[in-house]
Nucleic acid binder design. Sequence first.
DNA 1: CTAGTTTTGTACCGACCGGTAAGAATATAA
DNA 2: TTATATTCTTACCGGTCGGTACAAAACTAG
Lengths: 205, 205
Amino acid sequence: MSESRCTASVGRPRAFDPEIALEKALDVFWRKGYDGASLADLTEAMGINKPSLYSTFGNKDQLFLKAIEVYEKRPCAFFGPALDEPTAHQVVKKMLYGAATNFADKSHPQGCVIIQGALSCSETASAVKEALIARRQEGEQKVRDRLLRAQAEGDIPATTNVVTLARYLGTVIQGMAIQANNGATSEELTEVAELALSAMPSINQ
Amino acid sequence: MSESRCTASVGRPRAFDPEIALEKALDVFWRKGYDGASLADLTEAMGINKPSLYSTFGNKDQLFLKAIEVYEKRPCAFFGPALDEPTAHQVVKKMLYGAATNFADKSHPQGCVIIQGALSCSETASAVKEALIARRQEGEQKVRDRLLRAQAEGDIPATTNVVTLARYLGTVIQGMAIQANNGATSEELTEVAELALSAMPSINQ
DNA sequence: CTAGTTTTGTACCGACCGGTAAGAATATAA
DNA sequence: TTATATTCTTACCGGTCGGTACAAAACTAG
Protein backbone atom coordinates (compact mmCIF):
# COMPACT_ATOMS: atom_id res chain seq x y z
CA MET A 1 0.00 0.00 0.00
CA SER A 2 2.78 2.39 0.99
CA GLU A 3 4.42 4.16 -1.93
CA SER A 4 7.71 2.54 -2.83
CA ARG A 5 10.18 4.12 -0.41
CA CYS A 6 13.87 4.25 -1.15
CA THR A 7 14.88 1.18 0.83
CA ALA A 8 12.32 -1.28 2.08
CA SER A 9 14.67 -2.64 4.75
CA VAL A 10 12.15 -5.23 5.82
CA GLY A 11 10.99 -8.33 3.99
CA ARG A 12 12.79 -10.16 1.25
CA PRO A 13 15.05 -7.80 -0.67
CA ARG A 14 14.36 -7.22 -4.34
CA ALA A 15 16.73 -9.19 -6.52
CA PHE A 16 16.89 -6.68 -9.39
CA ASP A 17 17.48 -2.99 -9.95
CA PRO A 18 14.19 -1.39 -11.07
CA GLU A 19 16.01 1.33 -13.01
CA ILE A 20 18.07 -1.16 -14.98
CA ALA A 21 14.97 -3.28 -15.57
CA LEU A 22 13.20 -0.17 -16.82
CA GLU A 23 16.01 0.52 -19.26
CA LYS A 24 15.69 -3.03 -20.57
CA ALA A 25 11.94 -2.58 -20.94
CA LEU A 26 12.54 0.68 -22.79
CA ASP A 27 14.80 -1.13 -25.23
CA VAL A 28 12.07 -3.67 -25.99
CA PHE A 29 9.32 -1.06 -26.38
CA TRP A 30 11.63 1.04 -28.53
CA ARG A 31 12.30 -1.82 -30.93
CA LYS A 32 8.86 -3.43 -31.01
CA GLY A 33 6.41 -0.73 -29.99
CA TYR A 34 3.67 -1.16 -27.40
CA ASP A 35 1.62 -3.66 -29.36
CA GLY A 36 4.61 -5.61 -30.61
CA ALA A 37 6.22 -6.03 -27.20
CA SER A 38 4.75 -8.99 -25.30
CA LEU A 39 5.06 -9.50 -21.58
CA ALA A 40 7.24 -12.51 -22.36
CA ASP A 41 9.58 -10.25 -24.38
CA LEU A 42 9.65 -7.74 -21.54
CA THR A 43 10.20 -10.12 -18.64
CA GLU A 44 12.91 -11.96 -20.52
CA ALA A 45 14.80 -8.75 -21.32
CA MET A 46 14.31 -7.39 -17.82
CA GLY A 47 15.43 -10.64 -16.22
CA ILE A 48 12.39 -10.88 -13.96
CA ASN A 49 9.10 -12.71 -14.02
CA LYS A 50 5.63 -11.36 -14.42
CA PRO A 51 4.56 -11.00 -10.78
CA SER A 52 7.69 -8.94 -10.09
CA LEU A 53 6.92 -6.77 -13.07
CA TYR A 54 3.33 -6.20 -11.98
CA SER A 55 4.14 -5.55 -8.30
CA THR A 56 6.91 -3.10 -9.22
CA PHE A 57 5.54 -1.28 -12.25
CA GLY A 58 1.78 -1.81 -12.18
CA ASN A 59 0.86 -3.15 -15.59
CA LYS A 60 1.98 -2.98 -19.21
CA ASP A 61 0.60 0.52 -19.75
CA GLN A 62 2.28 1.96 -16.68
CA LEU A 63 5.51 0.15 -17.47
CA PHE A 64 5.50 1.74 -20.91
CA LEU A 65 4.87 5.21 -19.52
CA LYS A 66 7.64 4.80 -16.95
CA ALA A 67 9.98 3.59 -19.67
CA ILE A 68 9.14 6.74 -21.65
CA GLU A 69 10.15 8.88 -18.69
CA VAL A 70 13.48 7.09 -18.60
CA TYR A 71 13.79 7.76 -22.31
CA GLU A 72 13.22 11.48 -21.93
CA LYS A 73 15.68 11.84 -19.06
CA ARG A 74 18.47 9.58 -20.22
CA PRO A 75 21.94 11.10 -20.62
CA CYS A 76 21.92 11.30 -24.42
CA ALA A 77 18.49 12.93 -24.64
CA PHE A 78 18.85 16.06 -26.74
CA PHE A 79 15.43 17.66 -26.77
CA GLY A 80 15.30 19.18 -23.31
CA PRO A 81 18.89 20.48 -23.27
CA ALA A 82 18.48 22.03 -26.72
CA LEU A 83 15.75 24.31 -25.36
CA ASP A 84 18.25 25.76 -22.89
CA GLU A 85 20.55 27.06 -25.62
CA PRO A 86 20.91 30.85 -25.55
CA THR A 87 19.80 31.72 -29.09
CA ALA A 88 17.01 30.47 -31.34
CA HIS A 89 19.58 29.46 -33.92
CA GLN A 90 21.47 27.36 -31.42
CA VAL A 91 18.25 25.81 -30.09
CA VAL A 92 17.12 24.69 -33.52
CA LYS A 93 20.57 23.62 -34.65
CA LYS A 94 21.21 21.55 -31.54
CA MET A 95 17.81 19.94 -31.87
CA LEU A 96 18.20 19.01 -35.54
CA TYR A 97 21.76 17.78 -35.19
CA GLY A 98 20.90 16.00 -31.95
CA ALA A 99 18.12 14.11 -33.69
CA ALA A 100 20.39 13.27 -36.62
CA THR A 101 23.09 11.89 -34.33
CA ASN A 102 20.86 10.18 -31.85
CA PHE A 103 18.11 8.62 -33.96
CA ALA A 104 20.63 6.67 -36.04
CA ASP A 105 22.97 5.76 -33.16
CA LYS A 106 23.66 2.05 -33.38
CA SER A 107 24.09 1.63 -29.62
CA HIS A 108 20.31 1.55 -29.21
CA PRO A 109 17.22 0.99 -31.39
CA GLN A 110 16.80 3.42 -34.27
CA GLY A 111 14.42 6.34 -34.23
CA CYS A 112 12.40 7.64 -31.30
CA VAL A 113 10.12 5.63 -29.04
CA ILE A 114 7.82 8.60 -28.48
CA ILE A 115 7.25 8.88 -32.20
CA GLN A 116 7.08 5.22 -33.15
CA GLY A 117 6.07 3.47 -29.91
CA ALA A 118 2.33 3.49 -30.57
CA LEU A 119 1.61 5.19 -33.87
CA SER A 120 -0.89 2.84 -35.50
CA CYS A 121 -2.04 0.42 -32.85
CA SER A 122 -4.81 -1.69 -31.39
CA GLU A 123 -7.62 -0.29 -29.27
CA THR A 124 -5.88 -1.77 -26.24
CA ALA A 125 -3.00 0.61 -26.85
CA SER A 126 -5.12 3.68 -27.49
CA ALA A 127 -4.43 5.19 -24.05
CA VAL A 128 -0.70 4.88 -24.66
CA LYS A 129 -1.13 6.24 -28.18
CA GLU A 130 -2.91 9.31 -26.85
CA ALA A 131 -0.21 9.78 -24.21
CA LEU A 132 2.46 9.77 -26.92
CA ILE A 133 0.52 12.19 -29.09
CA ALA A 134 0.27 14.48 -26.05
CA ARG A 135 4.03 14.22 -25.50
CA ARG A 136 4.74 15.15 -29.10
CA GLN A 137 2.38 18.09 -28.93
CA GLU A 138 3.90 19.22 -25.65
CA GLY A 139 7.31 19.05 -27.26
CA GLU A 140 6.15 21.18 -30.15
CA GLN A 141 4.54 23.58 -27.67
CA LYS A 142 7.84 23.94 -25.83
CA VAL A 143 9.63 24.73 -29.07
CA ARG A 144 6.92 27.22 -29.93
CA ASP A 145 7.21 28.91 -26.55
CA ARG A 146 10.98 28.99 -26.85
CA LEU A 147 10.77 30.61 -30.28
CA LEU A 148 8.22 33.11 -29.02
CA ARG A 149 10.62 34.04 -26.23
CA ALA A 150 13.38 34.42 -28.80
CA GLN A 151 11.10 36.64 -30.82
CA ALA A 152 10.38 38.78 -27.75
CA GLU A 153 14.11 39.00 -27.17
CA GLY A 154 14.62 40.24 -30.71
CA ASP A 155 16.36 37.00 -31.66
CA ILE A 156 13.83 36.30 -34.39
CA PRO A 157 12.14 38.93 -36.61
CA ALA A 158 8.68 39.94 -35.42
CA THR A 159 7.31 39.08 -38.86
CA THR A 160 8.26 35.41 -38.59
CA ASN A 161 5.46 32.91 -38.06
CA VAL A 162 6.96 30.94 -35.18
CA VAL A 163 3.97 28.62 -34.89
CA THR A 164 4.59 27.30 -38.37
CA LEU A 165 8.31 27.29 -37.75
CA ALA A 166 7.89 25.07 -34.67
CA ARG A 167 5.59 22.76 -36.56
CA TYR A 168 8.07 22.53 -39.41
CA LEU A 169 10.83 21.67 -36.97
CA GLY A 170 8.68 18.97 -35.38
CA THR A 171 7.84 17.59 -38.82
CA VAL A 172 11.49 17.32 -39.84
CA ILE A 173 12.48 15.68 -36.55
CA GLN A 174 9.63 13.20 -36.77
CA GLY A 175 10.55 12.44 -40.36
CA MET A 176 14.13 11.84 -39.32
CA ALA A 177 12.89 9.17 -36.90
CA ILE A 178 11.28 7.36 -39.83
CA GLN A 179 14.45 7.79 -41.88
CA ALA A 180 16.45 6.22 -39.06
CA ASN A 181 14.07 3.27 -39.13
CA ASN A 182 14.69 3.05 -42.87
CA GLY A 183 18.37 2.58 -42.12
CA ALA A 184 19.66 6.11 -42.73
CA THR A 185 23.00 6.84 -41.08
CA SER A 186 23.82 9.74 -38.77
CA GLU A 187 25.80 11.35 -41.59
CA GLU A 188 22.86 11.12 -43.97
CA LEU A 189 20.51 12.56 -41.37
CA THR A 190 22.96 15.35 -40.61
CA GLU A 191 22.86 16.36 -44.26
CA VAL A 192 19.08 16.51 -44.00
CA ALA A 193 19.41 18.60 -40.83
CA GLU A 194 21.67 21.05 -42.64
CA LEU A 195 19.21 21.38 -45.49
CA ALA A 196 16.29 21.74 -43.10
CA LEU A 197 18.13 24.52 -41.29
CA SER A 198 18.41 26.44 -44.52
CA ALA A 199 14.62 26.71 -44.63
CA MET A 200 14.81 28.87 -41.52
CA PRO A 201 16.62 32.02 -42.63
CA SER A 202 14.89 34.00 -39.90
CA ILE A 203 16.85 32.25 -37.17
CA ASN A 204 20.21 32.41 -38.87
CA GLN A 205 22.53 33.69 -36.15
CA MET B 1 -4.64 -24.55 -57.73
CA SER B 2 -5.48 -22.50 -60.82
CA GLU B 3 -4.71 -18.80 -60.47
CA SER B 4 -7.87 -16.82 -59.74
CA ARG B 5 -9.41 -16.22 -63.16
CA CYS B 6 -11.73 -13.30 -63.82
CA THR B 7 -15.00 -15.22 -63.47
CA ALA B 8 -15.11 -18.68 -61.95
CA SER B 9 -18.45 -19.49 -63.61
CA VAL B 10 -18.50 -22.86 -61.91
CA GLY B 11 -19.14 -23.64 -58.26
CA ARG B 12 -20.82 -21.49 -55.65
CA PRO B 13 -20.42 -17.83 -56.53
CA ARG B 14 -18.48 -15.60 -54.17
CA ALA B 15 -20.79 -13.48 -52.08
CA PHE B 16 -18.50 -10.46 -51.77
CA ASP B 17 -16.42 -8.16 -53.96
CA PRO B 18 -12.71 -8.84 -53.26
CA GLU B 19 -11.73 -5.29 -54.20
CA ILE B 20 -14.22 -3.74 -51.82
CA ALA B 21 -13.17 -6.18 -49.11
CA LEU B 22 -9.56 -5.20 -49.73
CA GLU B 23 -10.44 -1.53 -49.31
CA LYS B 24 -12.07 -2.35 -45.99
CA ALA B 25 -8.98 -4.28 -44.93
CA LEU B 26 -6.80 -1.36 -45.94
CA ASP B 27 -8.86 0.93 -43.72
CA VAL B 28 -8.30 -1.36 -40.72
CA PHE B 29 -4.55 -1.76 -41.35
CA TRP B 30 -4.26 1.97 -41.89
CA ARG B 31 -5.86 2.78 -38.56
CA LYS B 32 -4.38 0.00 -36.44
CA GLY B 33 -1.21 -1.10 -38.18
CA TYR B 34 -0.29 -4.71 -38.92
CA ASP B 35 0.19 -5.76 -35.30
CA GLY B 36 -2.82 -3.86 -34.03
CA ALA B 37 -5.23 -5.24 -36.62
CA SER B 38 -6.63 -8.62 -35.58
CA LEU B 39 -8.27 -11.08 -37.93
CA ALA B 40 -11.50 -10.42 -36.06
CA ASP B 41 -11.15 -6.70 -36.83
CA LEU B 42 -10.44 -7.48 -40.46
CA THR B 43 -13.19 -10.03 -41.10
CA GLU B 44 -15.75 -7.83 -39.37
CA ALA B 45 -14.83 -4.79 -41.47
CA MET B 46 -14.63 -6.84 -44.65
CA GLY B 47 -17.98 -8.50 -43.99
CA ILE B 48 -16.63 -12.00 -44.53
CA ASN B 49 -15.42 -14.82 -42.32
CA LYS B 50 -11.95 -16.19 -41.91
CA PRO B 51 -12.05 -19.10 -44.35
CA SER B 52 -13.17 -16.71 -47.10
CA LEU B 53 -10.35 -14.35 -46.20
CA TYR B 54 -7.75 -17.09 -46.29
CA SER B 55 -8.97 -18.72 -49.49
CA THR B 56 -9.13 -15.39 -51.29
CA PHE B 57 -6.13 -13.50 -49.95
CA GLY B 58 -3.75 -16.15 -48.55
CA ASN B 59 -2.96 -15.03 -45.02
CA LYS B 60 -2.61 -11.88 -42.95
CA ASP B 61 0.76 -10.96 -44.45
CA GLN B 62 -0.44 -11.31 -48.02
CA LEU B 63 -3.67 -9.50 -47.23
CA PHE B 64 -1.64 -6.60 -45.88
CA LEU B 65 0.60 -6.47 -48.92
CA LYS B 66 -2.39 -6.57 -51.27
CA ALA B 67 -4.04 -3.80 -49.26
CA ILE B 68 -0.86 -1.75 -49.69
CA GLU B 69 -1.09 -2.16 -53.45
CA VAL B 70 -4.64 -0.85 -53.31
CA TYR B 71 -3.36 2.07 -51.26
CA GLU B 72 -0.71 2.99 -53.77
CA LYS B 73 -3.08 2.82 -56.72
CA ARG B 74 -6.18 4.40 -55.24
CA PRO B 75 -7.56 7.49 -56.98
CA CYS B 76 -6.33 10.05 -54.46
CA ALA B 77 -2.77 8.71 -54.36
CA PHE B 78 -0.45 11.61 -55.05
CA PHE B 79 3.03 10.14 -55.07
CA GLY B 80 3.10 8.43 -58.46
CA PRO B 81 1.33 11.21 -60.37
CA ALA B 82 3.60 13.85 -58.87
CA LEU B 83 6.60 12.17 -60.50
CA ASP B 84 5.02 12.77 -63.90
CA GLU B 85 5.00 16.55 -63.52
CA PRO B 86 7.13 18.30 -66.14
CA THR B 87 9.50 20.25 -63.91
CA ALA B 88 11.35 19.45 -60.70
CA HIS B 89 9.63 22.32 -58.99
CA GLN B 90 6.22 21.03 -59.93
CA VAL B 91 7.16 17.48 -58.91
CA VAL B 92 8.26 18.53 -55.45
CA LYS B 93 5.44 21.01 -54.97
CA LYS B 94 2.76 18.54 -55.98
CA MET B 95 4.28 15.92 -53.71
CA LEU B 96 4.47 18.17 -50.65
CA TYR B 97 1.03 19.70 -51.16
CA GLY B 98 -0.41 16.29 -51.99
CA ALA B 99 0.89 14.88 -48.73
CA ALA B 100 -0.42 17.88 -46.79
CA THR B 101 -3.89 17.54 -48.28
CA ASN B 102 -4.10 13.78 -48.25
CA PHE B 103 -2.50 12.77 -44.95
CA ALA B 104 -4.94 14.91 -42.95
CA ASP B 105 -8.00 14.14 -45.06
CA LYS B 106 -10.80 13.18 -42.67
CA SER B 107 -12.47 10.85 -45.16
CA HIS B 108 -9.95 8.13 -44.30
CA PRO B 109 -7.45 7.36 -41.51
CA GLN B 110 -4.77 9.98 -40.95
CA GLY B 111 -1.21 9.69 -42.20
CA CYS B 112 0.19 7.00 -44.50
CA VAL B 113 -0.11 3.25 -44.10
CA ILE B 114 3.24 2.67 -45.76
CA ILE B 115 4.91 4.86 -43.16
CA GLN B 116 3.00 3.84 -40.06
CA GLY B 117 1.67 0.37 -40.88
CA ALA B 118 4.56 -1.57 -39.35
CA LEU B 119 7.12 0.85 -37.95
CA SER B 120 7.88 -0.65 -34.54
CA CYS B 121 6.41 -4.12 -34.46
CA SER B 122 6.62 -7.71 -33.29
CA GLU B 123 8.90 -10.29 -34.88
CA THR B 124 5.83 -11.78 -36.53
CA ALA B 125 5.46 -8.56 -38.51
CA SER B 126 9.11 -8.22 -39.45
CA ALA B 127 8.56 -9.40 -43.02
CA VAL B 128 5.89 -6.76 -43.51
CA LYS B 129 8.07 -4.18 -41.80
CA GLU B 130 10.91 -4.90 -44.23
CA ALA B 131 8.51 -4.71 -47.15
CA LEU B 132 7.37 -1.26 -46.04
CA ILE B 133 10.94 -0.07 -45.55
CA ALA B 134 11.67 -1.24 -49.07
CA ARG B 135 8.66 0.66 -50.40
CA ARG B 136 9.78 3.84 -48.69
CA GLN B 137 13.28 3.46 -50.04
CA GLU B 138 11.96 2.76 -53.51
CA GLY B 139 9.88 5.89 -53.27
CA GLU B 140 12.90 7.93 -52.32
CA GLN B 141 14.85 6.28 -55.13
CA LYS B 142 12.18 7.33 -57.62
CA VAL B 143 12.35 10.90 -56.40
CA ARG B 144 16.13 10.80 -56.62
CA ASP B 145 15.98 9.47 -60.18
CA ARG B 146 13.42 12.09 -61.10
CA LEU B 147 15.59 14.87 -59.70
CA LEU B 148 18.64 13.46 -61.46
CA ARG B 149 16.70 13.55 -64.71
CA ALA B 150 15.72 17.13 -63.97
CA GLN B 151 19.36 17.93 -63.36
CA ALA B 152 20.33 16.36 -66.67
CA GLU B 153 17.64 18.43 -68.33
CA GLY B 154 19.08 21.59 -66.80
CA ASP B 155 16.06 21.97 -64.55
CA ILE B 156 18.25 21.86 -61.43
CA PRO B 157 21.76 23.34 -61.09
CA ALA B 158 24.55 20.77 -61.58
CA THR B 159 25.98 21.77 -58.21
CA THR B 160 22.89 20.70 -56.29
CA ASN B 161 23.13 17.52 -54.20
CA VAL B 162 19.98 15.78 -55.40
CA VAL B 163 20.59 12.72 -53.21
CA THR B 164 20.30 14.83 -50.09
CA LEU B 165 17.46 16.79 -51.62
CA ALA B 166 15.47 13.60 -52.21
CA ARG B 167 16.18 12.41 -48.69
CA TYR B 168 15.09 15.74 -47.28
CA LEU B 169 11.86 15.56 -49.24
CA GLY B 170 11.24 12.02 -47.96
CA THR B 171 11.94 13.17 -44.41
CA VAL B 172 9.47 16.03 -44.58
CA ILE B 173 6.76 13.84 -46.09
CA GLN B 174 7.28 11.14 -43.49
CA GLY B 175 7.21 13.75 -40.77
CA MET B 176 3.95 15.09 -42.15
CA ALA B 177 2.44 11.63 -41.73
CA ILE B 178 3.30 11.76 -38.02
CA GLN B 179 1.91 15.28 -37.80
CA ALA B 180 -1.34 14.05 -39.33
CA ASN B 181 -1.50 11.37 -36.65
CA ASN B 182 -0.98 14.11 -34.09
CA GLY B 183 -4.12 15.77 -35.39
CA ALA B 184 -2.64 18.43 -37.64
CA THR B 185 -5.06 19.79 -40.24
CA SER B 186 -4.48 20.00 -43.98
CA GLU B 187 -4.07 23.76 -43.65
CA GLU B 188 -1.39 23.36 -40.98
CA LEU B 189 0.42 20.76 -43.05
CA THR B 190 0.22 22.98 -46.10
CA GLU B 191 2.01 25.72 -44.19
CA VAL B 192 4.74 23.21 -43.37
CA ALA B 193 4.89 22.23 -47.04
CA GLU B 194 5.36 25.86 -48.05
CA LEU B 195 8.15 26.30 -45.56
CA ALA B 196 9.79 23.05 -46.61
CA LEU B 197 9.69 24.19 -50.22
CA SER B 198 11.66 27.28 -49.28
CA ALA B 199 14.56 25.04 -48.28
CA MET B 200 14.89 24.04 -51.91
CA PRO B 201 15.92 27.21 -53.72
CA SER B 202 17.63 25.15 -56.41
CA ILE B 203 14.32 23.90 -57.75
CA ASN B 204 12.50 27.22 -57.67
CA GLN B 205 10.83 27.44 -61.06
C1' DC C 1 -31.79 -34.64 -62.01
C1' DT C 2 -27.16 -35.78 -61.01
C1' DA C 3 -22.26 -35.04 -60.63
C1' DG C 4 -18.72 -31.92 -59.89
C1' DT C 5 -16.88 -27.54 -58.20
C1' DT C 6 -16.40 -23.67 -55.33
C1' DT C 7 -17.75 -20.80 -51.30
C1' DT C 8 -20.08 -20.57 -47.27
C1' DG C 9 -20.77 -20.82 -42.01
C1' DT C 10 -19.53 -23.17 -37.86
C1' DA C 11 -16.75 -25.01 -34.86
C1' DC C 12 -12.44 -25.91 -33.57
C1' DC C 13 -6.97 -26.07 -33.11
C1' DG C 14 -2.63 -25.15 -30.33
C1' DA C 15 -0.22 -21.12 -28.97
C1' DC C 16 0.06 -17.03 -26.90
C1' DC C 17 -2.05 -12.81 -24.77
C1' DG C 18 -2.14 -9.79 -20.32
C1' DG C 19 -2.74 -10.63 -15.66
C1' DT C 20 -3.01 -13.12 -10.98
C1' DA C 21 -3.46 -16.63 -6.88
C1' DA C 22 -0.76 -19.05 -3.72
C1' DG C 23 2.92 -20.60 -1.32
C1' DA C 24 7.98 -21.00 -0.79
C1' DA C 25 12.02 -18.08 0.09
C1' DT C 26 14.56 -14.37 2.32
C1' DA C 27 15.11 -10.49 4.69
C1' DT C 28 14.35 -7.49 9.38
C1' DA C 29 12.48 -6.76 14.14
C1' DA C 30 11.56 -8.40 18.52
C1' DT D 1 13.84 -18.32 17.72
C1' DT D 2 9.64 -16.41 16.30
C1' DA D 3 6.71 -13.16 14.04
C1' DT D 4 6.19 -10.21 10.27
C1' DA D 5 6.93 -8.18 5.87
C1' DT D 6 8.28 -8.36 1.18
C1' DT D 7 9.72 -10.72 -3.05
C1' DC D 8 10.42 -14.81 -5.29
C1' DT D 9 8.85 -18.86 -8.27
C1' DT D 10 5.41 -21.75 -10.19
C1' DA D 11 1.38 -22.67 -12.00
C1' DC D 12 -2.65 -21.18 -13.64
C1' DC D 13 -6.82 -18.02 -15.36
C1' DG D 14 -10.16 -16.67 -19.20
C1' DG D 15 -9.67 -14.58 -23.51
C1' DT D 16 -7.81 -13.85 -27.94
C1' DC D 17 -4.32 -14.77 -31.41
C1' DG D 18 -3.60 -16.51 -36.47
C1' DG D 19 -5.07 -20.32 -38.95
C1' DT D 20 -7.87 -24.54 -40.52
C1' DA D 21 -11.09 -29.00 -40.97
C1' DC D 22 -15.41 -30.10 -42.34
C1' DA D 23 -19.77 -30.26 -44.06
C1' DA D 24 -23.77 -27.71 -45.73
C1' DA D 25 -25.00 -24.53 -49.43
C1' DA D 26 -25.15 -22.73 -54.08
C1' DC D 27 -23.77 -22.62 -58.39
C1' DT D 28 -22.65 -24.87 -63.55
C1' DA D 29 -22.05 -28.70 -66.84
C1' DG D 30 -23.82 -32.69 -68.56
